[in-house]
Design a protein around this nucleic acid. Structure first.
Length: 181
DNA sequence: ATGGGGATCGTCT
DNA sequence: GACGATCCCCATC
């Protein structure tokens, strides 16, 4: 997918408003509209690729369009979309979506949390969409994962802020949030 | 509505 | 052996 081959910071902004979906075993689609993202690059001390290639982060070194999933805090999975050129070591973290497909299944997986708490965090998105380490390296578009362009004809209002939950390179304005949601 | 602290384990030092 | 690209619970306002 062409949009994903650009710089992660650009892609993180561009993906706001796109639909992020998975196909369930029964063929149904689950997911929603991307409302919050963050960019991570190898030149960035907050990135998993900052210290070079390892077994865990290898998929981040390309090609673009693959899924990078990681396990964190002993409990949670988080999902990224690999971006950039071959060997760049960059990706966009999906931090939040606005649920549009298969709400009932997502509520069930999220233990019937309120709708505002359904998919408003990176690990919550993975819980609701049942994304785990089994999805590591999946290619978007011809398997379980799908990205569909924004249907909005009017321009979206997108706010840039510093990233969440990191301790290094905290000043970078690489978090993008859809306004008026 | 907001904030502090505990849980928990794979990955890297 | 330490530390997270986090979530949840509970206390307080």
């Amino acid at each position: 997918m062409k949009i994903l081959k650009k710089d992660a910071v650009r892609v993180a902004r561009d993906l706001i408003g796109w639909q992020f979906l998975v196909r369930e075993n029964d063929g149904q689609l689950t997911g929603g509209i991307i409302t919050e993202t963050e960019a991570y690059k190898s030149t960035d001390a907050a990135s998993h690729t900052y210290k070079g290639k390892t077994a865990r982060n290898s998929v981040m070194f390309g090609p673009a369009g693959k899924i990078y999933v990681y396990f964190t805090y002993g409990k949670h999975w988080c999902v990224n979309i690999v971006t950039g050129k071959e060997d760049d070591g960059q990706a966009v973290l999906i931090r939040s979506i606005q649920a549009t497909h298969n709400l009932e299944l997502m509520r069930q997986r999220r233990k019937n949390k309120s709708d505002t708490e359904l998919t408003n965090g990176p690990a919550k998105v993975c819980q609701a969409m049942a994304i785990t380490g089994a999805d590591y390296g999946q290619i978007i578009g011809n398997g379980r994962f799908f990205l569909l362009p924004s249907k909005k004809t009017n321009k979206l209002t997108i706010k840039a802020t510093t990233r969440i939950g990191i301790t290094r390179d905290t000043h970078r304005m690489w978090r993008f949030i859809l306004q008026n949601r």
